[in-house]
Computed example of a mutant assay.
Amino acid sequence: MAALALGAASPLSFAQHGGLGLVTPPVRLDDAWLVDQTGRKRQLNDLLQRRITALQTVYTGCGTVCPLQGALFNAVQQRIAGMRAGRPVQLLSVGIDPLSDSPSALRAWLARFEAGPAWNAATPSLEDVDRMRLALSGSKAPLGDLADHSTQVYCFDANAMLRWRSADLPRVNDICDVLGALART
Rank of each mutant, 00 (worst) to 15 (best):
A2V: 15
A3D: 15
L6M: 09
L6N: 09
A9F: 06
S10C: 07
S10Y: 08
S13E: 08
F14Q: 11
Q16N: 12
G18R: 11
G21V: 08
P25R: 05
L29C: 08
D31H: 11
A32F: 02
A32Q: 07
L34K: 08
G39F: 13
R42T: 03
L44A: 04
N45K: 06
L48E: 02
R51Y: 04
T53F: 02
A54C: 02
Q56D: 12
T57K: 04
V58A: 08
G61F: 08
V65Q: 02
L72E: 11
A75M: 12
A75H: 14
Q77M: 05
R79S: 03
R79G: 06
A81H: 14
M83D: 13
R84T: 14
R84Y: 05
D97M: 13
D97L: 13
D97T: 13
P98M: 11
P98T: 15
L106N: 07
R107I: 04
R107D: 05
A111I: 03
R112L: 11
T123Y: 09
T123V: 08
P124L: 14
P124I: 14
P124Y: 15
D128Y: 11
D130K: 14
H149M: 02
Y154K: 00
C155Y: 01
D157K: 03
M161H: 07
D174H: 01
D174G: 10
D177K: 03
A181D: 00
A181Y: 01
R184V: 09
T185E: 01
